[in-house]
Amino acid sequence: MNLEAVRNFRFNSVSQDFSRRDTILYALGLGFGSDALDPDQLRFLLEDRLVAVPSICCVLAHPGRWVAAPELAIDWIRLLHGEQTFEIHHPIPPEGSVKGDYQIAAVEDKGVDKGAILHLVKTLSDAATGARLATVRSVLFLRGDGGCGGFGVPGQSAGPLPGSPPALTLEISTLPQSALIYRLSGDYNPIHADPEAARKAGFERPILHGLCTFGVATRAILSAFAGNAPERLQSLSVRFSRPVFPGETIRTEFFPSGDEIRFRSIAVERNLVVLDRGTARLTM
């Protein structure tokens, strides 16, 4: 990694017009509609009453594969998505025009053999009014870029979950074709669709997008604690632990405390934690 090039890298603002069709397609990628008679699920799927899943803020106005810019010299092939957070400032509309402004806030050097941590911040705004809709933070683990130095002040990571049993659990099944649907929301990385590409990356078969699993957790929070009212969800953060395979069942375990809900998600068939140290905050 060329640290000075990363420090001085400036993104162009990313503008996107999105339609109700895009909002519905995103919800379908998260498995909404598994019960086609459930009015709570249909709110996210029918255009005459449509509301957006808050986690759509993570995919709107995406900056593309900027990490592959030659001047940055990032070993992007070995990059892993480490953590994801969003904070909602105004409910995401079901259609409209948005602008994404990006900044590399910090790089933490963990050492030559341990890699580096890059902190990326997106501010998502309404393109017409300039109103801030969401702040989205991504933590990227650059496994091949340790020993290059660092800069900035990294955000604070969430602590471990309570040691007590969960107060509530909720299971959501993914479909064998979930990744093939979700990729239409903008992430066309072939490891999520092409078996050969997945094998070259070290996976036995295509894996589900991490942000899809993140969206399934958002869906679980909305269902279990918010009455499927997206305007009640203020923020959500997770640490990615392991990939999910399409078709697996995701069990989310909750540890609520006031307006803060700690959680983790488990791939039931393998009994492995796939999202950890989750925190959600809701309005009452």
Rank of each mutant, 00 (worst) to 15 (best):
D35K: 13
V107G: 00
G210H: 03
L28W: 03
A229L: 10
R21D: 11
V6P: 00
G210W: 01
G227E: 10
P246E: 09
R20F: 07
D145E: 06
P54Q: 00
A116D: 07
R49L: 06
T218K: 04
T85S: 12
G186E: 04
A73T: 06
S125G: 05
F214P: 01
N271A: 14
A52E: 01
I266C: 13
A167Q: 11
P70D: 14
S185T: 11
T135I: 13
L208Y: 04
S19V: 05
V274P: 00
K200W: 06
V268Y: 11
E71Q: 15
G159W: 05
R7K: 14
L30S: 06
R270M: 13
R277C: 09
G115M: 06
D109K: 05
V112R: 11
S157L: 15
T129Y: 10
A197M: 06
L37E: 14
V53R: 03
L60H: 01
G149F: 00
D194F: 09
Y188N: 12
E269Q: 15
S15V: 06
P39H: 08
R270L: 13
L170P: 06
A27I: 03
P195N: 07
S178N: 07
G152L: 01
T279C: 13
G96K: 04
T169D: 02
N228C: 14
P243R: 05
L42N: 07
A217N: 06
R10N: 11
G144A: 13
A197D: 05
A267R: 00
F32D: 06
L133T: 00
L72M: 08
K99N: 07
Q177L: 14
L175T: 15
G82W: 01
L80H: 10
Y26S: 02
I250T: 11
S235T: 10
K114S: 12
G33L: 12
I172S: 05
F245Y: 15
A280D: 08
Q84S: 09
V273A: 08
T169H: 03
F225V: 07
D145H: 04
V112K: 12
S185Q: 03
P176W: 08
R281F: 05
S223E: 15
S223P: 02
F203M: 08
H192I: 07
P190K: 04
R205C: 08
A224Y: 02
R10Y: 07
N8W: 02
R65K: 14
K122E: 08
G186Y: 04
E108A: 14
S19G: 07
V244E: 06
Q16C: 00
P176T: 02
A198K: 02
G278N: 05
F151I: 10
R43D: 11
F86W: 04
L208F: 06
F255C: 09
E204R: 14
V6K: 00
I117C: 08
H192K: 12
I191R: 03
A134Y: 02
L46G: 07
A193I: 07
I191C: 03
T213I: 03
